[in-house]
Computed example of a mutant assay.
Amino acid sequence: MTIAIGSDHGGYELKLEVIKHLKDRGFEVTDYGCDSTASCDYPIYGKAVAEAIAAGKQDLGILICGTGIGMSMVANKVEGVRAALCSDCFSAQATREHNNANVLCMGARTIGPGLALMIVDKFVDTPFSNDERHVRRIKMFS
């Protein structure tokens, strides 16, 4: 499984921890930026990851900013992307099972790194249920 990841300056340090964690687990990770804690514009990186997912270049995406809100708003503007802002493990699991979310958004200023890594694990390890009701509902998104 390939994973696209991006952040702004507020999520940069957590992004580095997530990348290391995912690589240690054997995932192929592509970093779409940013590359420091210097102030930057989160839509650039949110859009880059979302477009990679929509184009089928990566299987899943992870976006991290201060709250995760801005990244989720940007990513969900890209057709074919189902980005979910998660701050707990149950939501990460449920959004994969029920919504077939393909982008996880998190806030580095709202959750700690330990919880963030648990959320990432739930997200990448949980498959879509393929239940007819969930497939039907996802088709209603557009």
Results as ranks from 00 to 15, higher is better:
K139L: 14
I119Y: 10
G56A: 10
G66I: 05
T95I: 10
E79Y: 11
K122T: 05
L22T: 04
D35C: 06
A83D: 03
M71S: 11
K47Q: 15
N102Y: 03
D88W: 04
T95M: 10
A116F: 09
C34T: 15
L115Q: 07
V103R: 00
K122I: 02
D24V: 06
F141R: 15
N99M: 09
I19H: 12
D31N: 15
G56L: 14
L22N: 08
G61Y: 00
V124H: 02
G112I: 06
F141Y: 15
E97M: 12
A101C: 13
S91P: 04
D131R: 14
I19R: 08
C86K: 06
A108C: 10
T37G: 12
N99P: 12
R109M: 10
D41E: 14
L104N: 03
S72Y: 02
G66P: 12
K20T: 10
A54Y: 00
D24N: 14
L115V: 07
K23E: 15
F27T: 07
A116Y: 06
F128A: 14
I53Y: 02
A101R: 10
C86S: 10
Y45P: 00
A92M: 05
G112W: 02
I111Y: 05
V49R: 00
F123R: 05
K57V: 04
D125H: 02
E17W: 02
M71Y: 02
G26R: 01
R133I: 03
T126F: 09
R133N: 08
G33T: 12
I19Q: 08
M118I: 01
I53L: 13
M73C: 06
T30H: 01
A84F: 09
S72A: 15
V29H: 00
D59R: 00
S91R: 04
V124S: 05
K77M: 08
V103C: 00
K20G: 08
N130L: 13
D88H: 02
I69P: 02
I138A: 04
L22G: 07
R25L: 15
V49M: 01
F123S: 11
S72E: 06
R136Q: 13
H98N: 13
L104S: 13
E97V: 06
A92F: 03
N76M: 10
I119M: 07
L22A: 06
T95D: 10
C34A: 12
S91A: 13
N100L: 03
E97L: 14
F27K: 00
R96I: 13
A52F: 00
L115G: 09
Y42I: 04
N99C: 08
H134N: 08
C65Y: 01
A75D: 01
A94F: 06
A48E: 01
Y32E: 11
G68N: 03
V78C: 00
L60I: 09
L85T: 06
D59Y: 00
V135P: 03
I64H: 01
A101F: 03
M106R: 01
A50R: 04
I19Y: 07
D125C: 05
E51Q: 13
